[in-house]
Amino acid sequence: MRPSQFGALHSDTGSRSSLGPAFGHSQGRYLLRFESLFHSGRGLSFPCDERGQVMLDLLSEQARDNYLFARAVVGHEYATPVVRRCDE
């Protein structure tokens, strides 16, 4: 797997992330969603397992930076993240 296969993007209407077909058994079925506190419908999402654990080694450099930023500003810029199934 190449890290460039995975990433998280800013989104106006929801979350988008590129999940590769070989992302892992449970890793590809869930997203950890950080919802913006100031811009309704915007946020960041990252592939995770059912417990919300993100495999940082599988994220692109930009996605990893976005994830670490989002975690650092929970309560200031983003709400506490929630785990969602990808099919929601």
Rank of each mutant, 00 (worst) to 15 (best):
D49W: 05
G75W: 04
S36Q: 07
R51K: 12
H10M: 09
T80H: 14
F38K: 12
N66I: 00
G75S: 03
R33L: 12
L58H: 02
V73E: 12
S45I: 04
F46S: 04
T80N: 14
M1W: 10
S11I: 09
R71D: 03
E88I: 09
Q62A: 08
S60V: 04
R29F: 11
F34S: 02
R16A: 04
D87H: 12
L59A: 02
S15N: 08
Y30Q: 08
G24F: 08
V73H: 11
F69Q: 13
L58P: 00
A70S: 01
S26I: 13
V82C: 12
L9Y: 15
E88M: 08
S26N: 11
Y67G: 01
D87P: 08
V83I: 10
L9A: 11
V54F: 02
S40N: 10
Y67A: 11
A70M: 08
P21C: 10
R16Y: 10
M55I: 09
L44M: 07
P21G: 13
Q62I: 00
Q27W: 04
F46E: 10
H76W: 11
V74T: 13
T80E: 15
T80S: 14
G20W: 07
R16Q: 11
S11W: 09
R85F: 13
Y67P: 05
D49I: 00
F6P: 00
D87Q: 15
Y30V: 07
R71C: 14
L31E: 10
D12Y: 14
P21F: 06
R85Y: 15
G14P: 01
F6L: 05
A22R: 13
L68T: 12
H76K: 15
P47F: 02
S40Q: 13
G28L: 08
R51V: 11
E35V: 08
D65E: 15
E35K: 12
G20N: 04
G24D: 05
P47T: 01
S15C: 13
R16K: 11
G20C: 03
Y67S: 01
R85A: 14
G7A: 01
S36W: 08
T13P: 01
L32N: 01
R29Y: 15
G28K: 06
F34P: 11
P81D: 06
S15G: 09
N66R: 02
T13D: 14
R51D: 14
P3H: 02
V83R: 09
A22L: 11
S40E: 12
R64G: 05
F34I: 10
T80F: 12
R2N: 00
V82E: 15
L56N: 05
L68G: 04
L68Q: 10
D65P: 00
R51T: 09
G7P: 02
N66F: 06
D57A: 12
L59M: 08
L68N: 07
L59K: 00
D57R: 09
L59E: 00
N66L: 06
L9D: 09
V74D: 05
L56M: 12
Q5L: 10
P47S: 06
E61Q: 08
L56Q: 15
E50R: 13
A63I: 00
A8T: 03
